[in-house]
Simulated assay, not measured.
Amino acid sequence: MEYTDLGRSGLSVSRLVLGTLNFGWNTQEGDAHALMDRAHEHGINFFDTANVYGGNGGTETIIGNWFAAGGERRTKTVLATKFYGNMGEWPNQGRLSALNIRRACEASLKRLRTDYIDIYQMHHVDRATPFEEIWEAMDVLRLQGKIVYTGSSNFAAWHIVKGQETAKRRNCYGLVSEQSCYNLLNRTVELEVLPACQDYGVGMIPWSPLGGGLLGGILRRESLRAPIIAPELDKHRSAIAEYESLCDELGDAPATVALAWLLAQPGVTGPIIGPRTVAHMDASLRALEIELEEKTLQRLDQIFPGPGGPAPEAYTW
């Protein structure tokens, strides 16, 4: 396994992140426990979850039960969870108010059966809550030893800038990571989000690295595709066909190439993988073994053109 520091911090994390979105929905608890055990066997120490996964805390509960089985599972894991979504129908059971930050953290700690969260992440920006309020609440949690670092997810670049500048004025650490949708089909973050992260020392953690399955060899198993992605497949069919042909030339699976491409991008800490089976997880490790040649990276840029680089040069001089 390869490891890297998360953003500007000294926290060492694996370059593949185990995503747990499927736990409790598509993956039953026993299988989820086997996946987490397998992740540790491979040296994957970075696990990501959220309080809304699995239906109001179901996924966190599964992870907590796994931690409770002992064997240094918790100490070997860099645990990241997220909060923002409504966990009930009553006011203040969602978003980023100081009240919900406190309540959501306490609830996650209980479900996860741990006394601290390594990276406590805001799942979305809350335009109604000032960063002064957010950082004050986060600082209290840090002083209490309940969280170690803070992260964001789905923030625009100016949200990252505003958050970091507010943190600087308060002499607090601010964000250590940002989770964004980033893959060969969706490269919008290259305009401003990724440059902002690099400038502020915030680690980029791409979610949906396979573009919802479109980059995982979809044409080879088209009969199994979900109806929900059919419009996207039709939209990108020509590019995906060319991409799968390139992967055949390289002798690697499309999913492997998609992950390897992300690992080659500057500023990327590691993509979130969401295996449903141990076999899927084992296959993902191949992405760490290959180094895409420059001509291959250029070919991928031709197949899936990005926005043209960072702003403003991408759309002006």
Rank of each mutant, 00 (worst) to 15 (best):
P305E: 11
A264F: 08
N186T: 11
M87T: 12
G212F: 12
I62N: 11
P227N: 08
H123G: 08
I229L: 05
Y116W: 06
N92S: 02
A239L: 02
G88E: 06
C181W: 05
Y3W: 00
L109Y: 09
G174D: 01
Q93D: 00
A264G: 09
M122C: 04
E133V: 12
S177K: 11
L185R: 09
Y116M: 11
R225K: 10
G24M: 05
D37A: 08
L141G: 04
E60H: 11
I240C: 10
Q28R: 08
I119T: 00
P312S: 00
A283Y: 09
I160V: 03
G30F: 02
H159K: 13
A98W: 02
R95F: 09
E244P: 13
E2V: 10
E291V: 08
R170G: 10
R103F: 08
P305D: 06
H40R: 13
D5I: 14
V193E: 06
A107E: 04
R276I: 13
A137I: 11
A128S: 04
C172T: 00
T59K: 13
A157H: 08
N26V: 04
G274R: 13
V176Y: 04
E232C: 03
G212M: 14
Y315E: 04
V189S: 01
L262W: 03
L259K: 10
R142I: 14
L224G: 08
A264D: 05
V176A: 10
A226Y: 09
G10N: 12
V125C: 09
L219I: 09
G71A: 11
L259W: 01
R103I: 15
P206A: 09
R276D: 02
L184F: 05
L262C: 08
L214Q: 00
A283G: 11
D252A: 15
E29S: 13
L191P: 02
E190S: 08
A107Y: 05
L262F: 03
W135P: 08
S12K: 15
G217N: 11
T129C: 02
P206V: 12
P91A: 15
Q298N: 06
E293L: 03
A311W: 10
C172D: 04
A156T: 06
M122G: 03
Q121N: 05
T129F: 00
E132R: 02
H42Q: 04
G308Y: 07
H280F: 10
R169W: 13
I62A: 09
L246I: 15
A98Q: 07
A283W: 03
M1I: 07
C181A: 10
P195L: 10
T114W: 15
E133I: 14
S9K: 02
E132V: 12
E192H: 15
C172E: 06
S238V: 13
T166D: 01
A253D: 12
L112R: 05
L109V: 10
V257E: 02
L215R: 12
D115Y: 01
D118C: 11
I205R: 09
R111T: 01
P271A: 04
Y243R: 01
H40G: 04
F155R: 10
S208R: 12
L219D: 01
D48T: 15
R286W: 05
G10F: 07
T296I: 07
V140Y: 01
N92I: 11
W207F: 15
G163Q: 03
